[in-house]
Nucleic acid binder design. Structure first.
Lengths: 347, 347
DNA sequence: CTGAAAGCGCTTACAG
DNA sequence: CTGAAAGCGCTTACAG
C-alpha cells in the first residue's frame, strides 16, 4: 500500500500513463525516441501528479551528478562577486548546477564537502584545496580546474589565471615615468598567494628597469584586505618611512591605504600616489578615483567553467589560460581629469 | 569481477575490514554504537581505499539531501555579496551544503533547478520564484523561507525582511528637517519589488507629515540599478524638473544619480542632496560619502538559514522577522565632516 | 553490538 | 518503439 504523503515517483507516473517506468524515464530524458501519443500521455501524467524526478536516484543510476562544485577560501572581498557572476552564468547556460563551498581558511581534510561524491568536476580558487586533496583527485582522474593557482609540476590540471606581472609593470612604469615617483611601497597579499608573488615580481622588475634600487622597508604586507592594509600603512607612516607612492597589491588593500593616508593628512595623489589591482566595482567611485589594473575576473570564471566542461566531455582542456590585463588610469596616480567626468569615463 | 577503474564503494570497505556494509555505514554515520576495535578496522580500510561515500546513494537511502537551495534573480548588484556571505556562513556552520541558482529574471516553469528533488529546503530572495511554484511547494509542505518578499495570505511561509518604511522615513525627515529640502525625488525599484513599495510608502508619509504635497513628477523609476537610474536622472534634468534632493531607492541607484548629477554640473550635496538605501560596501567610499540606511543584509541571510533549519528540524519557525534599519549619516545629505575623517567614521 | 535483506527511485543494456 | 529486470551505492528496521 503506497502512502499518499510522499511525493509521487516514476512508478506512479507509469501507472497513470499505463506504460512502463522505462518509458517514463525515456520521455523525461528525451534521448530515446518514443511514440508521440505515448509521450503525450506520460507528459499529462507528470503534470497531473506534479512529478519531479528525484535527483539522487537519477544521479545514482546514471552516475552523473550534473553539478559543478566551486571551492574558495572566502566569500568576502570585492573580488568574489565578479568571479561568481561569471561562473554562475556559464554554469547555468551549460545546464549544470552549482554547489558552493567556502573553506574560510580552514582545510579540514576529514570532511570532504565537495568532491567526486557529489559533483562531476571542481573549480578551485587559489589555495582553497589542500595539496593532498588535489593530488588525490588527480590520482582518481577527477576533473578539476584551478583559478589563480599553479599546481605542482607533477599534477597536470588546467589553470586559468591573469597577467599579474605585466599588470604590475604597467602600473609601476606609469608611476615612475609619468609622475616621477621613485619611493614606491608594495603591499603584499596573503602568504603564498600566487597573484601577490607575480605582482611583486613585476614591481621589482619595473624598478630595476629604471635603476631604482629595491628598498626592503617599502615592501610590507597588506593581505589583499582593507583592515590589514590600513594597519600596515599606519605603521609605515608611524615609523617615518619615506615614500611617494603605494602599489596596494589589490583594490581592497587600496581602500585601507586611502584611509590611513587620509587619517594622516597625506593628500592623494599629491603627497602619495596610490594604485591598486583588479578594478573591482567600487574602484572608480573612490575619491580620488583609483588607478588600477583591470583583471578580467568574470571572464576567468566563465573560462574556468568552459575548460571544466571540456574535461567533463572527455575533451582536452587547455593546460594554461593566461588572461590579459589592462591598466585603467584614473586619478589616484596623479593624472588629472576634469571634474564632472571622473565618474563616467571608465564605465 | 569488480572493475578497478571506478571508485571504491562501501562493499570494498566492508570486505577489507571484514565486516558487513551495515557496520561500515554505522561507523561512517556515528549514530549507532560500534565496538572500538571494529570501528578502527573500518576507519583504516576507509583511509587505505580513500573511500568517500557517494552522496546520491546516501540521499536516496536516507531521504535527506543535507543541502539548502538558494534561489535569487541575479548575482550582480552590490547587495548580493552581503546576502550570500551571511547565508553561506550560517549554512556551513550548520553542516549543510549550499546550492545556488540565479533565475536571471526568467521564470522557466518547466525545468526546476532547485526544489524537493535535490534540496531539503529553499531560501528564496524576492520574487525569484513564481507564485505557482511557491504554491506547489507549500502544498507538498516543502520547507521554504522567503527573504524580502511577503507571500500571498493563503501561503504561510516564514519571511525575513527589513524595516523599509522606517528607514525611508528617517532619510526623508533628515533631508527636510536638517537640510531644508522640499523637492525630493524618489527613484523606484523594479516593478512589484516589495522593498521599493515600502520605501515609497515611507517617502510619502514623511512628506505628508511635513505638509509637503506629493509631486508625481518627482517619482521616477531607477530600478535599483546604476544604469537605469542614471538614465532616469538624466531625463529629469533634461526635462527641467526642479528638485533639491534625491532619495535614490537603493545605493546602486545612488551611483547612477551621482553620475548624472555630476555630468550635469550639479554639486552634491549643495545643489542636490542624495541619499541611498542598504549601505553596501562602496557607499562610504563614494565622493561625497553616501548618506544611506543600513540594512542588515548579512544578518537577513543568516536568520533566513536559521529559520529554514528550524523548519527542517520540524520546529515552528517565526512567520515574520522584521530587521531594524539604521540611518548612516555621511556627506551626501549635506552634513559636514572634517576632511580626513570621512572615510573612517562609519567603519 | 552486528548482519542479512529490503528498499530508496531512478537508468540502461538486453531482448523483442 | 517498449518492457522486464538488473543495478547504481547506500540506510535502516528487523532479528539475533
Amino acid at each position: 500500500m503506497k502512502l499518499k504523503t510522499s511525493s509521487p515517483t516514476i512508478s506512479d507516473v507509469a501507472k497513470k500513463a499505463k506504460v512502463s517506468i522505462a518509458t517514463v524515464s525515456r520521455v523525461i530524458n528525451g534521448k530515446t525516441p518514443v511514440v508521440p501519443e505515448t509521450a503525450e500521455r506520460v507528459h499529462r501524467a507528470i503534470k497531473e501528479l506534479q512529478f519531479v524526478p528525484r535527483t539522487a536516484a537519477q544521479v545514482l543510476a546514471s552516475r552523473k551528478t550534473n553539478t559543478i562544485g566551486l571551492i574558495l577560501s572566502e566569500i568576502g572581498g570585492a573580488f568574489f562577486p565578479h568571479l561568481l557572476k561569471g561562473i554562475e552564468a556559464e554554469t547555468r547556460t551549460s545546464g549544470y548546477e552549482l554547489l558552493i563551498h567556502s573553506t574560510q581558511g580552514a582545510h579540514d581534510n576529514q570532511r570532504k564537502p565537495l568532491g567526486e561524491h557529489n559533483t562531476d568536476g571542481l573549480l578551485v580558487f587559489t589555495s582553497s584545496l589542500s595539496l593532498d586533496e588535489l593530488g588525490r583527485l588527480h590520482d582518481i582522474q577527477f576533473p578539476v580546474v584551478l583559478m589563480h593557482q599553479t599546481p605542482p609540476r607533477e599534477i597536470n590540471v588546467p589553470v586559468i589565471t591573469i597577467e599579474n606581472k605585466d599588470g604590475a609593470v604597467m602600473l609601476i612604469d606609469h608611476l615612475i615615468e609619468m609622475h616621477g615617483r621613485r619611493q614606491i611601497v608594495y603591499m603584499r597579499g596573503p602568504e603564498d598567494h600566487e597573484d601577490s608573488e607575480w605582482r611583486e615580481r613585476g614591481y621589482r622588475e619595473a624598478l630595476e628597469m629604471h635603476n631604482i634600487p629595491i628598498n626592503p622597508n617599502l615592501i610590507v604586507t597588506g593581505g589583499f584586505d582593507e583592515e590589514q592594509s590600513f594597519a600596515a600603512m599606519q605603521k609605515l607612516i608611524r615609523d617615518g618611512i619615506q615614500f611617494d607612492a603605494v602599489f596596494a597589491g589589490d583594490d581592497d588593500a587600496a581602500i585601507g591605504a586611502y584611509r590611513a593616508l587620509k587619517n594622516a593628512g597625506r593628500l592623494i595623489p599629491d603627497d602619495v600616489a596610490v594604485v591598486g589591482f583588479d578594478d573591482v566595482q567600487f574602484s572608480r567611485y573612490l575619491s580620488p578615483a583609483l588607478t588600477t589594473v583591470r583583471a578580467p575576473i568574470e571572464e576567468v570564471g566563465r573560462e574556468a567553467v568552459r575548460q571544466l566542461i571540456r574535461l567533463l566531455n572527455g575533451q582536452q582542456a587547455q593546460s594554461l589560460t593566461l588572461m590579459r590585463t589592462e591598466m585603467i588610469i584614473r586619478e589616484s596616480c596623479g593624472c588629472k581629469f576634469q571634474e564632472g567626468t571622473s565618474l563616467s569615463k571608465n564605465i
